[in-house]
């Protein structure tokens, strides 16, 4: 079962900024083909890396999320940001296959 958390403008702060674990946030939108390709990859990684990292996503098409998308300068999606201690530690932009992304993430943990 996927452990990916669907974020909203209300849960962003407690789930991401105040998290004790590192959090990977995928800024995505339903119309974006590579974002939709990324979804199963994130689902699998959320299980494999459970306990080491939280994986969450924020749909930037939702107008209520526009402010967060602007705050983090989202101009290309899928845009995955790794948050540590409430700050962006690393950006991953564009689709990446699972094994490659798993290695990239593990290198940051």
């Amino acid at each position: 079962m996927s452990k990916v958390i669907n974020l909203t403008e209300k849960t962003f702060e407690p789930e991401v900024l105040k998290s004790n674990l590192p959090v990977l946030v995928d800024f995505w939108a339903p119309w974006c083909a590579p974002c939709r390709m990324m979804a199963p990859v994130l689902d699998e990684l959320s299980e494999e890396l459970d306990g080491k990292i939280k994986i969450a996503k924020l749909d930037v098409e939702n107008p209520a999320h526009g402010e967060l998308a602007m705050q983090y300068n989202i101009q290309s999606i899928p845009n995955m940001k790794l948050f540590k201690g409430g700050k962006v530690a690393k950006d991953f932009i564009g689709f990446r296959p699972k094994e490659i992304f798993a290695d990239e993430l593990k290198a940051e943990l």
Partner: peptide
């Protein structure tokens, strides 16, 4: 990713 894009339908 900060204004340079390779996918118009995405961005």
């Amino acid at each position: 990713g900060k204004g340079v894009s390779y996918c118009a339908t995405c961005d």
